[in-house]
Write a protein that binds this DNA or RNA. Sequence first.
RNA 1: GCGCCCUUAGCUCAGUUGGAUAGAGCAACAGCCUUCUAAGCUGUGGGUCGGUGGUUCGAAUCCACCAGGGCGCGCCA
Length: 594
Amino acid sequence: MQENLFAELRAHVVAALTDIVPDLPPEIAARVEVTATKDEAHGDMATNAALVASKAARRKPQEIGAALAEKLGALDVVTKAELAGPGFVNLHLAPDLLRAQLPVILRRGETYGDATIGGRVNVNVEYVSANPTGPMHIGHCRGAVVGDALANLLAKAGFAVTKEYLINDAGGQVTALAWAAYWRYLEAIGTTLTEEEYSAEVPGGMQYRGEYLIPVGQRLAAEHGTAFATESRGVAAPELWFDIVRETALEMMMAGIREDLDLLGVTFDRFSSERELVLKGATDATIEKLTAMGLIYNGVLEPPKGKLPDDWEPREQMLFRATRFGDDVDRPLRKSDGSNTYFANDIAYHADKIARGAEIMIDVWGADHGGYVSRMQAATKALAGEGRAHLDVVLCQIVKVLKGGELVRMSKRAGTFITLRDLLEEVGRDAVRFTMLTRKSDAQMDFDIDQAIAQTRENPVFYVQYAHARCRSVLRAAHEQGLDLAPESLANAPLDSLDNAAELTLIRRLAAWPRQVEQAAFAREPHRIAFFLYDLAGDLHTLWNRGRDDATLRFLQPDQPDATRARLALVAATAMVIRSGLAVMGVTPVEEMR
RNA sequence: GCGCCCUUAGCUCAGUUGGAUAGAGCAACAGCCUUCUAAGCUGUGGGUCGGUGGUUCGAAUCCACCAGGGCGCGCCA
């Protein structure tokens, strides 16, 4: 008995097909699929084996299918196999085979569904990587949840996963942060400057005017008094204060971000610092390496088509030959002042990941970075050589927040944007995480606050949580009646009495969980777990409601201890799979609804 | 102008990687509460999968072109 019923049946199908077509090429055998049927009238599973083998065997699909149906129909585990449509073979499984999944689930617990397709390959999942210039807002939230769930999913599928966050603490925005924090410092020590007078003294003008930097200024004032200002409490020479102000601001911003991540339940194995890499000389070393490979040259880029930037002028720059790896244009590595671009540092960072052993890198980015994908992939191809380490990018489209049917406006200026913390306080962690996974990440999403906290079927969070709570409620009631609920005890229960259609539908769904994990991991689409759980919850609720019309279908049947134990096994297994799925999503299962 | 993403029921969205008669929730319509079990349940109606061609046994899915929406396009990160 295999844990994955689909894999088990597929093995039977491939064996039978090999008998019928002895010289079947392996690449054809690899295309054989065993899938769940859409329509239960078509049986439990269907295979495309005859269709994919037809061409290689030079025989009609129907002919191979008929032979296949005959062989498969003779198996103990198959009650009926029939040729259908253009050459599918539909399999009706022995109910015993389906029921036998329950003891497997109960014994495996939450590890049921763990897959091996990852082969312990090292995967580095990088997500969030919000600039440490302010609190996390809702735009970061989706990437955080998607990245975290994807990493969990890949781990469950058998990959060796590292969750990583890159702190962008090297660029010009950190300089801007320091100047903004310095303003709050001047305020804290009672400067007579106005904000606009100050801003005029800041190179490029002051950014980051949100109130969240006030505590930074207060701490600087508390620790350093007026030492960082002129005697008249004006702007002192940056040499005097800049490094300390920058460090203090960075430290406090990162502490806030880590708190936010913690509230969201998002965890990392590693925080990498861009500045540390730069100080180590990683960027220069990477540029040297690429130069040695003949991939760096100095040249002038064509101006972009369409509307020109106002200050466009042709300029010679150090360029990376991204076009050699499929990108549209070669990409600059140095700014005109000779400093490195962010792209250059990012190449060095990905080289660092490869050096640390990453075989697959997955970056979760916002959609506004979509134009950056092909150049980064070009760079990793250049660094890793064809075939080895490679980069996948998951783009998360923007999230619009709705409340009371109205769009909640977000402006990053003046701190009017919704922070992640605001959202968590209003909706709660579990609802935020689940809701963020109810769309595929490359589709735009409307986050409806009212719906996320509604207690109706429209709200998938509630619906799935409620299913779990109902299972637990039945198990609690059984426990109070003195029934033995130990997994091993339930696993040994006689299960023949589980023969109602709604019960078998639920078991089929449970049996599909391992395959669902594999496919979601393969596609790098954690949202599929949310949809699976929603369907599973629906099956459980349907069965529950059947008990309203037909009391013999209720879970606890005082006069029938064997039937009760069988149903408790089903309920316990259902709760187990829901927990297992919620664990991937990072959502807490609830024991009861309040 | 170019590149990437999106377009599926009145609305919000799935769609098992190319499979059978395209699914769910909401809304609409028709039934159902002295319940371990109505913070609902059961059923019905509703579709040219944005459009046009192509690839093949077979297309919502792959390719080309077109239309609409979003994002991006040298010295921001």
